[in-house]
């Protein structure tokens, strides 16, 4: 479970006058469940890239997860840190065809040479937890809802301190979307992960503790959203 402190975050692209993301400071408590919303182009994806260390912010900014400031890390260091601490779930899954469900779950750990002896068992356990039982089913034969559940299991394999989901329900029908939303929240609780969800889906964002709304790269509103939890 990791807390987050952002300060002086600014991301600009050459040719654009104003920065696509400009956040002077933002703090998220460890274990909280945050929704990030905003119109398209408001900087949500850039924020995900910054939080996961996929993208660098301008010099002077800091991205402090727990004790680690990933803004100062090397590319290799950020890759390693991300693999160990962040579980990432994306709108279009990014599962790898040709591999089975369980192989997909284990792939990032294998590629990072970070496999632990218990990981295959944990992968099966997670697969069961997201409601799937055919571990060796090829990924391309699954429905979209099932794929997103495999993606959730993959994100949780290495017990990440943070779970970040980028539009996890946007490409699913409402029934699968509900299931995925429920799984995300339940599993982040049981795995003691901080949860950050970028989403337009009110059924998902409505169940989270706090909602940050971005507009033109800035935080437009930030309020607690307690009434629905319970």
């Amino acid at each position: 479970m990791l807390s987050l402190e952002l300060s002086r975050i600014s991301v600009s692209y050459p040719g654009l006058l104003s920065p696509v993301l400009d956040i002077p400071s933002l703090a998220i408590a460890a274990g909280s469940r945050i929704a990030v919303t905003g119109a398209s182009g408001s900087g949500k994806s850039t924020l995900v890239s910054i939080l996961t260390g996929l993208e660098r912010c301008a010099a002077g900014g800091s991205i402090r997860w727990g004790d680690a400031d990933i803004a100062g890390m090397s590319e290799r260091g950020r890759d390693r840190w991300r693999g160990a601490h962040i579980g990432l779930i994306m709108q279009d899954f990014h599962l790898f065809p040709g591999l089975s469900a369980v192989d997909n779950i284990l792939l990032p750990a294998r590629l990072s040479r970070a496999m632990k002896p218990g990981d295959p068992d944990r992968a099966l356990m997670l697969l069961y937890a997201v409601g799937l039982c055919r571990a060796d089913q090829k990924i391309e034969t699954m429905s979209r809802g099932e794929m997103q559940r495999v993606a959730i299991a993959r994100a949780l394999l290495r017990k990440p301190g943070v779970l970040i989901a980028d539009e996890p329900t946007a490409s699913l029908d409402s029934e699968s979307g509900d299931a995925v939303a429920r799984l995300l929240i339940d599993l982040s609780v049981s795995n003691e992960s901080t949860l950050i969800v970028v989403s337009h889906d009110p059924r998902l964002t409505g169940q989270l503790d706090r909602r940050i709304t971005l507009s033109a790269g800035r935080v437009a509103s930030d309020r607690a959203h307690r009434e629905k939890a319970a």
Partner: peptide, 12 residues
């Protein structure tokens, strides 16, 4: 696909 590999923590 390569970007996704990196995003999930695969080293360069």
């Amino acid at each position: 696909q390569i970007g996704a590999l990196r995003a999930f923590g695969a080293p360069q």
